[in-house]
Amino acid sequence: MSGISRRKFLTCTLVGAGATALSLKTTDAFASAKLEGYPDSMGVLVDLGRCVGCRSCEAACNREQHLPAPAQSFDDPSVFDQTFHNGQKRRTDEQAYTVVNRYEPTATDQPVYRKSQCNHCNEPACLTSCFVNAYTKTSEGAVIYNPNICVGCRNCMIACPFNMPAYSYSSATNPVIKKCIFCYDTRLKNGLPPACVEICPQQVMTFGHRKELIEIAHERIKARPDRYIDHLYGENEVGGTSWMYLAPAPFEEVGFDTTMNNEPIISNVKDFLGTVPMVLAIWPALFTGFHLLATRKHDIEQHGDDHSAHKEEEKKS
């Protein structure tokens, strides 16, 4: 490439270096933006060893959220024997934002009951996946959504690592997402605990500031190491959740996914998604520049010819 002039080479190098620097800077910015959650986020510590499976929490949720009547009474323990496809236990749906299931782990004599509902992640995957921005993570810690914005695409159902969002399949005209909202509208934003926490006779759930709950949980493990698995589920899983769990038996035996990464789900995609705006913004300019440089010689030659022609004309006159 003897045709490249010194000036052209320098310009190309500068442009290339600039683009590289920009892309590196973008990646760094994303890497350092790891959220620790809102500083004053509230949370709930669930101590599974205390639960006796009375299902009062399900009843309280039903009343608080004005959900439709269930198929069976809330004091009917036969629901614990129900299994669905592939032996799955009951799950949250449009009529129940929280469900209690019974497990019989080998480590304990007594059955262990586990309440499930939205865990209100610090960096919610549902929020990330929602292309109409229906979801909000409030400073109180709740992950809420606006059903008027929801278009019913169900991306969040796929994105949620805990399989919590449900869908109003019963609505033919306007199906939307349905899930636990931490009783945000009626309670949390007024400084009150959610209905399930308040009704629980055994105080399975402790409501408070998430940071303090983490301390309390570790103190409980330390005080009674024989009673707890030495792990606070939700402290770090998928970047941390507002609802956290202590268990008397291995978590995988009481319905928890223990293969969860401590990185938020968004970390899987944010490096890639971070490059999209860069590509869109820089590449057109960069390649236009390359094109202009590559065709410059031709332009100069043409322009040069014109110029010399002009000079010749001048000479003639």
């Binding site: 009062s56 009843a59 039903n62 009343r63 269930p70 009474s73 809330f74 004091d75």
Partner: peptide, 19 residues
């Protein structure tokens, strides 16, 4: 009324057995 028990017990349907 809260527990949907007593006189508020839901009428048994086929749905009770699950879907």
């Amino acid at each position: 009324a809260l527990f949907r028990a007593g006189k508020y017990t839901p009428a048994p349907t086929d749905k009770a057995a699950g879907h």
